[in-house]
Amino acid sequence: MKRYGDTYALKGLSFTVARGEVYGLLGPNGAGKTTTLRAIAGALRPTRGRILVEGVDPAREPLRVKRLVGVVPELPSLFPELTVRDNLEFIAGIYGFSRSEARRRARETAEALGLGDYLGVRYGRLSKGLKRRVDIAAALIHDPPILLLDEPTSGLDVIAASRLRERIAALARQGKTVVLSSHYIEEVMALADRALILYRGSKIVEGTPAMLRRVLSKKRVTIYYTGEPPQSLSVEAREALGAYGVEDLKIERGALSFKASRTVEALEASIRLLRERGLRVVDVEVLPPSWDDVFKAHIEAAGGRAACPCGGRAG
């Protein structure tokens, strides 16, 4: 547990990550993902409770834990005035490597991450994607068994994010234990062996991507149409879509919307219904569930017995 005054940043959080596993922390901004990673890395003391990293408690022996983990913070945070080489050699030096060993590690780690051509460039002049790669190189310079990645693709364009995910997957294949936080559901689903959904500092659910996908599967579908809908449309839509797990059906002027777990079938059925009633479909919008929806879905799945984070306030 981590408490600031009467506000809980983390509450009742417990999980275990196996060696060599890629573990995802999923949740909205402010859910407690960064706090969790900082506590694991020994950069934050839990108010209550205990963390063990390879059997070492970061609150008691932060320096030992800091040698076991490599951390990539959410924002680029190396020294902008120094070159990539100087940054990496500096970090290696702090881990106690000799000057020649630090130079060798800086070169090899940079080359492994495709940064060989940028060693002489100032960190502050790199693009966001390249900075992220240098951040990862800095986290790997002492070859730690555990890598903590905080929102690794945040702020990157689609191509840079995709390449970075490939590199993270490659690190996992090399046997690194990876704990990554993200608010991108698909990112965690693609990379993680298991994941945990955090909401307002509390664990909502933990499981494999397939299991979490069920919790996260109810997407909000909106179909925009033109024409005058018949009075009976609402009843007809409920009948036609009932078989596809549709909820929260709304028919407004020009838009039909609902939440569905079987999104494709529900979408096809509703377009068919609208066309049969002489309405012209002009656009379709499919949005992932909001984090509130995820939390509610989990409460419902647990039969209303799940613990409520209650706004993260101590009471």
Binding site: A43, P73, L75, L78, F79, I94
Partner: peptide, 18 residues
């Protein structure tokens, strides 16, 4: 001050320093 503003000080926290 430079390191606080650039976020580098937060990065130093993750290094094995007392």
């Amino acid at each position: 001050s430079f390191e606080k503003l650039s976020g580098a000080l937060a990065r130093i926290l993750y290094l094995p320093l007392t």
